[in-house]
Simulated assay, not measured.
Amino acid sequence: MAITRPDETDLLLPLHDGAHEQAPFTLFLQRLKRRVRADQAVLAVRAGQGEWRWLDSRIAPPPDQDHLTALRAHRVYAEEEGGYARLIRVDEPGGAAAVLVIRRAQSDFSAADGALLARLAPHLAIALRTRAALDHAATTASVVERAVSAGRIAWASFGADGRPLARSEVFAARGGSFGPIAADVAACVAERRPMVVSLRPKEAAAMLLIPLDLPRTPLATAPVALGLMALNAGPGDDAQPALLAALFGLTGSEARLAAAIAAGATLSDAATQLDLTIETTRNYSKRLFAKTRTRGQVDLVRLIGASPARFALGPFTPPAESEEGGSRPE
Rank of each mutant, 00 (worst) to 15 (best):
Glu79His: 10
Ala141Glu: 08
Ala85Gln: 09
Gln273Thr: 07
Gln65Trp: 11
Trp52His: 02
Arg287Ala: 14
Ala312Gly: 06
Ala70Ser: 12
Ser268Met: 14
Val196Asn: 04
Gly236Arg: 01
Pro211Leu: 05
Leu128Trp: 11
Gln30Asp: 14
Glu169Phe: 11
Gly159Thr: 04
Arg46His: 03
Asn232Thr: 09
Glu279Gln: 13
Leu13Glu: 07
Gly314Asn: 02
Pro63Arg: 00
Leu209Met: 05
Thr4Pro: 12
Leu11Pro: 03
Ala121Ile: 02
Asp10Met: 14
Pro63Gln: 03
Ser57Glu: 12
Ala270Glu: 12
Ala173His: 09
Ala258Trp: 12
Pro218Met: 04
Val189Lys: 01
Pro164Trp: 10
Leu128Met: 12
Asp17Gln: 12
Arg163Asn: 12
Phe316Asp: 11
Ser268Leu: 15
Arg119Met: 12
Glu323Lys: 01
Ala290Val: 12
Arg75Val: 15
Arg86Gln: 15
Ser327Met: 15
Val143Asp: 08
Ser168Cys: 13
Leu12Ile: 15
Ser253Thr: 07
Asn232Gly: 15
Val298Thr: 10
Pro329Lys: 04
Ala150Leu: 04
Ala246Cys: 04
Val101Trp: 06
Glu92Ser: 01
Arg129Val: 01
Ile181Phe: 09
Pro211Gln: 03
Gly83Pro: 00
Asp161Ala: 06
Asp17Glu: 12
Ser177Pro: 01
Ala259Asp: 13
Thr272Ile: 15
Lys33Thr: 10
Leu231His: 10
Asp161Tyr: 10
Lys202Gln: 13
Met229Phe: 11
Ala137Gly: 06
Leu134Lys: 02
Leu247Met: 06
Ala205Met: 12
Phe171Tyr: 14
Asp275Lys: 14
Ala186Cys: 08
Pro63Ala: 04
Thr26Phe: 14
Gly227Phe: 11
Glu203Asn: 01
Ala132Leu: 10
Val196Tyr: 02
Val101Ile: 15
Thr272Ser: 13
Gly234His: 04
Ile3Ser: 02
Ala73His: 02
Ala290Asp: 13
Pro215Trp: 10
Asp213Thr: 10
Gly314Ser: 02
Arg256Phe: 07
Val224Asp: 08
Arg131Phe: 12
Ala183Tyr: 08
Glu145Lys: 00
Arg193Met: 09
Ala242Glu: 09
Ile210Thr: 06
Phe289Thr: 02
Leu247Val: 00
Phe28Ala: 01
Ser268Gly: 15
Glu323Ala: 11
His20Cys: 14
Ala173Thr: 07
Thr139Lys: 02
Ala309Cys: 03
Ile261Trp: 10
Arg302Trp: 05
Leu117Thr: 04
Ala96Arg: 00
Asp184Pro: 07
Ala245Gln: 00
Thr317Pro: 05
Ile210Phe: 13
Ile304Gln: 06
Gly82Leu: 15
Gln240Leu: 13
Pro194Glu: 11
Arg287Gln: 08
Arg129Met: 13
Leu11Ile: 06
Tyr84His: 12
Thr277Asn: 08
Ala239Ser: 14
Pro319Tyr: 09
Ala112Asn: 07
Thr69Pro: 01
Gly325Lys: 01
Ala271Pro: 01
Val45Phe: 10
Glu79Asn: 12
Thr277Ser: 15
Gly314Asp: 05
